[in-house]
Amino acid sequence: MSQPLFEYLCRMGDNALVLGHRVSEWCGVAPVLEEDIALANVALDLIGQTQLWLGLAAEVEGKGRDADNLAFHRDVWDFRNLLLVEQPNGDFGRTMMRQFLFDGWHLAQLQALMDSSNDQIAAIAEKSAKEVTYHLERSSDTVIGLGDGTEESHRRMQSAVDRLWPYVGEMFLSDDVDQEMMAHGIAPDPASLRAGYDTLVADVLAAATLKRPEDDFAHKGGKTGVRHTEHLGHMLTQMQWLQRSYPDATW
């Protein structure tokens, strides 16, 4: 049981870690000061959540590692994040579309985890859900605003949703780890979150005057770690470089 639980916690933690890192790349170069500050808040929340999930993962694993060990000393194949969150930022529109597509799933997931049979998981989920409620509010508003803005912003947002849609399906796929979690009442069936998600996406895209892509083909391999995209390796190269170059140092 502890191995699947460890896997599951890494999935939650790695999503937060990788997306938090991506969002932090905007610091100092966002389109307007208020957005710069807001994006940093999202990244800070996600980094905080990373510490909680990976901290618990390390505890469950019981091999003396901690959250930093997991974040900075695993290689690509050990990462368990969704492919969606490792996608590069692209323009601001694509960043916000990725955020919205993730937030919608993330909030539903956390709300379900608040009923987890595992108290520690339920507690982390409760704290995170408060933060993510706000993330979703902001990302939906921005997607709507830009979709329904100028011709150019509309075009860019449509291209963003078209580009990212193939990474949406992975969030609702399940495997043995998920089965194990469901069996112990720890986590929900991923497929059970799909209907609510589809309604949310339909509402927001409609308000944004954007079209939902018709093809629901889904890339997979992120949460299982079987096949990440090429982008993750480059991100880890940067993120882990100091720790790996000076393995005997403390920071």
Partner: peptide, 22 residues
Amino acid sequence: ITRAPTLERKAILLAKVQDEAG
């Protein structure tokens, strides 16, 4: 920020640079 050596250092640095924007 993207090369900060620990999660905590990353959060602190990001918060600080965010303050500067503020």
